[in-house]
Every structure is written in C-alpha cells, then in structure tokens.
Simulated assay, not measured.
Amino acid sequence: MDRNAKIFVAGHRGMVGSAIVRRLESAGYDNVLVRDRSELDLADQAAVFAFLKSERPDYIFLAAAKVGGIQANNTARGDFIYQNLIIEANVIHGAHRAGVDRLLFLGSSCIYPRDCPQPIKEEYLLTGPLEETNEPYAIAKIAGIKLCESYNAQYGTGYVSVMPTNLYGANDNYDLASSHVLPALIRKAHEAKERGERELVVWGSGAPMREFLYVDDMADACVFVMESGMRAGIFNVGTGRDITIRELAETVMDVVGFAGTIVFDRSKPDGTPRKLLDVDRLKENGWTARTGLKEGIALAYADYLDRFGG
C-alpha cells in the first residue's frame, strides 16, 4: 500500500478497529479516514453509499460489527444477525459501487462448525452445524465472507477475509453482561482482589479449550495481508496454541495478583468444546503472532487499570 493512500477503517472506535488505526499510523500511513457513529451510521445504506462515493478510499478495513460474549450472543440473537448483516452488506456493496478495489473483511473463528477437526483449517467452513449459542452472529459473518468471494468472482475485486481467534487487549469491553471470557475474567479477578474475596466464579466447567490473540497482533496481521497484495481468500489469524478455561483463569489470577480459589458455575454454558485455528496458511505467507499470552494479559490488565482505575 502507498503510504499516502486513503484508507477507511470502519469501526475505528472498537478494539480491533482502533488497533488497526494504531498499526497504520505507526507504519507511516498518513491518510487514514475514520468516522464515528454520530458522523456515519453504517446501518444506513444511503449514508454509507454517499460517503464511499464521495470519499472514494483506496482501501477499506471493515472492522465494524456488533460483538459480544456467549450471554450477549445467545440472548440478543436478532440484533446480532441483523446488525452484522446490514453493516457488512452496506459497506461491501457500497465499496463496489464506489470503485474500491481492495477491502479486508474481519470475520470470526465462530464461523466454523462446532465439532470440526482440530486445528481448524479454512476449508472446514460450511462442513457441519454451528455452535447454537452464537449461530446468528456466525451466519452473519459467513454471509460477509461469501459477499467478498462473490464480488471477487463477478466483478474482479480484491476483497479478502481474515478469521481471528478470540481477541483481547487495549480498548476491550469489560461489561460483564456482554464481554468475552478473558476481559470478564480480568475484571472479576481485579474486583475480587479489591474486595478481599476468596473465590473467583468462572462460567461453565473450565474444560473447554480456547486460543487467544493480542489485538495488536491481529492488527499487524490485517495490515500484512493488505500490504502483501493478497486479493482473495480466507485467512485464519491466531497463535496456533490453546489452553483450557481453567488455565486461562489461573493465568489471569497470577497477572492480577489474586490468590483466591476458582469456583466453576456449571449451570452456565461451556460453548464450543475446542476452537483452535490452523494458522499455517498465513504463516506460509510470512506472518506469525509475536505476543505471548501472559505478556498480553499483563498489557490488557494495564489498559484496564488505566481506563477504570486500580
């Protein structure tokens, strides 16, 4: 990418979008275009089409989405499928209408079947049933991937999709009603320490295995894909290593400095038993994650303290 190219980052206020903006600016890209929701509602088709036609960016990073943890996904099912469908349809079709040749779409590892072989390869998409608790969100993300593939096939555009594993880091969501597991554990462990409690309650059995990627590594992968000139395809983005939720909770407690006992609330759902991505496709193209889990959790906890106080 030319350092002077106009680059639109959709969703720049979110964890992923803000990390992409940081990565672009640190690399010397000086024409990064952003709009918050008060300036541009991505669910408003006419507004999105007019904006893209007027600005005509050279590249688009589509990081805008409605996201949340297992409880939010399972209870606000209509919101998750509708809002994500409408945002991606507006931006992808609007990009085509405006003549934008290069676009990167941020998907999710939940697109893959619940019980597919591990580690998960990109070709496992649509080979089995999805995890029920986040099926609407997953279907919306699959639709975004297929939009990119279909526009490439019909119009010759260069729209590529990346599938991140579980992300965490700076600017994460720590609302216990809608957050993902790692930020929720950071907040719960911190508050338990502050209150002098002796137990940390963790949802489920602690047995499911999950892979976690620091968000700045994800942003680095996104910029790498665009700079490398990849014009099509799906690329998993992760570390290639996973741990149990129990081990994750223990690591968070160690970083936070909480020496209590873990209590598992087995009345809560576990979700997918295991979700480890095969990251060989991107690795073979020259990219690997650099931030270790404990190092990343320490960075995330520092961000939490900075934002919400110690």
Rank of each mutant, 00 (worst) to 15 (best):
E39D: 04
L103S: 06
I120N: 06
G94I: 04
R102D: 15
L42W: 04
H93C: 03
L126I: 10
A95P: 01
A95R: 07
N90F: 01
P113Y: 06
T127N: 15
C116E: 01
R102L: 14
A138C: 05
G128S: 11
L106H: 14
L130V: 07
I142L: 12
D58W: 00
I81C: 04
D44P: 13
F49K: 01
L42Q: 02
L52Q: 05
N84Y: 03
N134T: 02
I81S: 02
R56V: 05
A63T: 13
N73F: 15
L40E: 00
E135M: 10
A95I: 13
E55M: 05
I86V: 12
D79F: 07
E55A: 09
G69S: 11
S54Q: 13
A98L: 03
I142R: 09
D58Q: 11
V48R: 00
G69Q: 06
S108F: 08
L106I: 15
P117C: 01
F80L: 09
A64N: 04
R97F: 12
A138K: 00
A46E: 14
L62F: 13
A89K: 09
G94C: 02
D79Y: 08
L104C: 10
Y82P: 02
I111M: 05
D115I: 06
E131C: 11
E39I: 09
S38P: 09
E123T: 14
D41P: 14
F51Y: 13
L52A: 04
H96I: 14
T133N: 09
A64G: 07
G68F: 05
A140P: 02
G78H: 02
Q71T: 14
C110S: 08
K66A: 12
R77H: 01
I86L: 13
A89S: 06
R77I: 01
R56Y: 03
